[in-house]
Design a binder for these strands. Sequence first.
DNA 1: ATGCATGAGAA
DNA 2: TCTCATGCATA
Length: 165
Amino acid sequence: MPCLGDVESDPRELEAFAERFKQRRIKLGVTQADVGSALANLKIPGVGSLSQSTICRFESLTLSHNNMIALKPVLQAWLEEAEAAQRERLAKPEPPCCGDRRRKRTSIAAPEKRSLEAYFALQPRPSSEKIAAIAEKLDLKKNVVRVWFCNQRQKQKRMKYSAVH
DNA sequence: ATGCATGAGAA
DNA sequence: TCTCATGCATA
């Protein structure tokens, strides 16, 4: 009954950590993007850099539970190192010192989005045929509709949903 | 901060 | 084909 593997998978603990993390990160004067790229310098096996988006989502708990659990130890390690480095600086009298073709993103208009949400409420996993039918009705590319449903399902699995429920 | 997209791996 | 972790582009 008292689980073995998932030591700190308690959502409350994760939530508390995410908040502490954000506050301490800000106190260090570091941006989300900074953290992401700094992770690579941490030299943790199998861990490279991450994007601003991912750090942001970690802080706002808009990642899946498993994703949060996987990232926590990494971010915790970064935080400890960053704070240790700062203490060093405070200990000494610090001397004064001193990136082609872009990807495109479809924009689904509000009315179409409302329709999609309505379809989703009825059937979160429409068949390929239904997706095609929906795409035609809304005058959207079939693939756009397919991806929209995938992303919508992912949203439901986040610790905290973002926007429309 | 969030919308739409990609790609690796599962099923 | 879907899920899942992740990110570019954009609001």
